[in-house]
Write a protein that binds this DNA or RNA. Sequence first.
DNA 1: GTTATTATGTAGACAGTTACTACTTTCTTG
DNA 2: CAAGAAAGTAGTAACTGTCTACATAATAAC
Lengths: 202, 202
Amino acid sequence: MSKNYHHGSLRQALIEAALPVLKKKGIVGLSLRELAAELGVSHGAPYRHFKNKTALLEAIAVTGFNALQDICRKAMQDFPDDPRQQLYQAGMDYIFYVARNPEIADLMFRPGLSREESNTELQQAVNSAVGSLAAIIENGKQRKLYGDHQTMDLVLTSLSTVHGLAMFIAGGMLIDPASPESSIEALGKRVYNILLHGMAGE
Amino acid sequence: MSKNYHHGSLRQALIEAALPVLKKKGIVGLSLRELAAELGVSHGAPYRHFKNKTALLEAIAVTGFNALQDICRKAMQDFPDDPRQQLYQAGMDYIFYVARNPEIADLMFRPGLSREESNTELQQAVNSAVGSLAAIIENGKQRKLYGDHQTMDLVLTSLSTVHGLAMFIAGGMLIDPASPESSIEALGKRVYNILLHGMAGE
DNA sequence: GTTATTATGTAGACAGTTACTACTTTCTTG
DNA sequence: CAAGAAAGTAGTAACTGTCTACATAATAAC
């Protein structure tokens, strides 16, 4: 019997099913068996797609980096002639993405997840996303927008700032998490302004 | 028998014993039973000090925020008349702290850990640490170093940037983790310069 | 089209884990 | 020094990760 002995897309289904669980119960509370049951599949099935629980978490992190890359690319398409707007737009889109999916962002920049063998797929996703951000910075550099700072330094600074800000907003640690979108946008604009023109007086 | 039926400081011992395990095996690989065995104590003992595994992780996060607060206070003491040096020093000290203890920093800004009941002790540690950083910023504001930006915006921006940079260095995601201290310091200096004077050319 | 091969899912088992409960020992303090 | 709180022990139920052997389905080769 079993019209669908094969699930068809169990890998993707596992990733999607894990998200609400992570949001509600965190990494510790996530169980592969529970996911399997929820998807109506035997408890061993997930191991056909993920070597272990950590591998699933890393796969989720990959989706986050892919999203970051998409966001950067879209920003470049939307403002092909305005690298500063590219950067601002990408930053704000990323902040809203993290606000909507904090559990994904939580897994992205984390030394303590694998730490054993380096996950090539994850490393590659990181590199691609960073590359897209670097392209935005390079666009600006070609127009002499960023002084003589090194591209990598600018990438590091902007990515750190945006990701950190996004995590603070998502985690509600420093900011009222009930902030309306408009106030998040206002905060983003102020931080972007500081980032661009410096903490020191203008 | 049992000269030491009571361990004496099991809570602290658990926190310390957890660190190398976290560094080696990550959150998923940490087990309270293993810690108990390692400390020569029964498997139920840890639950006298921590409601569950997550509570232990949060306690470790608290130590991280306490360290951040100490770093800020020390910087203020060391350079009582130079708020910019206070900020730079605190930032670099924090970066080296994270490089030495990535597994602690990994637990600090994490929306997905508790997410159920808010941990008061953790929240308080966050507030204290942020307060110390805000004091450094305020010192600078009183000397008109930071234009008319809001203190909270400056705190958010600098903390995000420094923490993000520290995590990247600790995780070796964007930078060669084998970088000697000197090159980490050089990188920190460049990023601090960008943060202070802006990505845009000076 | 039948047949090998590979991908995917199942069933069972084992060791290890969380977290609870009831009990014992030690420390503290009135 | 006695009473009560704090800390540790022992046992256990339910669950989890992960392995292995097996079954089924999809694919590709012939």
